[in-house]
Design a binder for these strands. Structure first.
Lengths: 231, 231
DNA sequence: AATCGTTTTAAACTTTCGTATGAAACGGAC
DNA sequence: GTCCGTTTCATACGAAAGTTTAAAACGATT
């Protein structure tokens, strides 16, 4: 894993060591996971000594946690802000599609964002499967707050939606978004010709349409449950 | 990681060593991932010597691959059979809900199945993020064949569905299923009281209803694209 | 210029990993 | 009983991991 050149954007030697380490660690953690990247690789990518990781952060795990802390607030605020922006828009109640599109954009924004290089969201997918963060931090800092906000917004737009159905719907939407990212990561790793590569924007447009119809079906269920397969 | 007692179902010492190793390796790989489990742990769990892994399988990676090979055929056949069973049922064309329910059941069956203990599907989620299998084996042995079968079935049931829309729909359905399993795994790891635990059957019922509506919306798109937000 | 706290460095330490080795134990065939 | 191929065993090896250490280098203050 010969990573000697700095793989971060503008971190040659002007920034302080701690930031260089954080940037390098983030890139390597995203690309190869927690166990897949060594402290030596991080130090080499940051252009500093191995001991710096322990000197500044007190260990590999602490550094990993700090990499996350940098993004928790930004990501949570971005997601919730995208919900609030839609919900507080003037001109009557927003459509379900508007809410979903706004949230989906905010969700995959770290993937498209050129500043972070779209690496961080891969780390999220990893962390969901292979936990290395302290217990419940992920839930408390990200999932619960964002899920709560989205749930309230959904219920407001779709009055027929029960609380449990709203949560199930969120599970569906987030599941599609995460899986899209996983599939993207997977396909870019394996150069398989037959497998069609989707444009991300196209997939999001699909998810919005698909989910809006799904949510409406779940909301209808409550009011009139007779006409289930009318088509 | 003190795993000394056998964590597999019925593998104390009656079964041959290779099977004991495969069983033990499967359990540990599922629980802790490829890098997270050592050959020593596997040998200890299987109740045999460390060298047995190299003697019988020629290395850790070969053993890992063999763990997968045991399941590839079974899982692929189960998925495709569940599709075929629905599609070849007498009494006219099956409903979209029937197809989705059948496929979803086959998909999560390894999770519910008491024989495997539902561990293997976790390994699938891991492997999608952290590749350790030889390039493209996962795609060729699982994803492509099953996706092709499901795509054809979907198009047959929903004539309005284009090929690309069918693939996008499958991405949505599989995404929901995988995410459900990830969430299940995640929540069982973290004993968080506020987070509601869903019954798996309940979630699947939701996914079927949700996805059926979503797919119909994507199929309608082709024929009449005027009435998008009629509700 | 000397001093003192901070940072950086090279090297070593301990542990753990996957694998290799060679001897011991086993089990039929003769 | 002896032989021989197969299996099991304890052990060792080199590599790589995270962490520690003590000295060197640095920088501001006096």
């Amino acid at each position: 894993m010969d990573v000697l050149s700095d793989n971060t954007i503008g971190s040659s030697s002007d920034k302080p060591v701690q930031e260089r380490l954080l940037d390098a660690a983030e890139g390597l953690f995203c690309e190869h996971g927690f166990e897949g990247t060594s402290v030596r690789d991080i130090a080499a990518a940051a252009g500093c000594n191995i001991a710096s990781v322990n000197y500044y952060f007190g260990g590999k795990e602490k550094l990993y946690l700090e990499v996350w802390r940098r993004h928790f607030n930004l990501m949570r605020q971005a997601r919730i802000a995208s919900i609030d922006r839609v919900m507080s828009k003037e001109g009557g109640e927003p459509s379900l599609e508007e809410l979903l599109a706004s949230y989906a954009d905010a969700f995959v924004e770290p993937l498209v964002d050129k500043h972070t290089g779209g690496r961080f969201i891969k780390l999220m997918a990893r962390e969901m499967v292979d936990r290395h963060l302290p217990q419940n931090i992920f839930l408390e800092e990200m999932i619960i707050p964002v899920m709560t906000a989205l749930q309230q917004a959904l219920i407001k737009i779709c009055p027929g939606l029960s609380e449990v159905n709203a949560r199930l719907a969120i599970l569906s939407v987030v599941g599609q978004l995460v899986h899209t990212i996983c599939a993207e990561t997977m396909l870019e790793q394996s150069n398989y010709p037959e497998m069609p590569k989707f444009e991300l924007a196209e997939v999001i447009r699909h998810i919005v349409k698909f989910s809006a119809a799904g949510i409406r079906a779940c909301a209808e269920q409550k009011e009139d449950r007779v006409q289930k397969t009318e088509g």
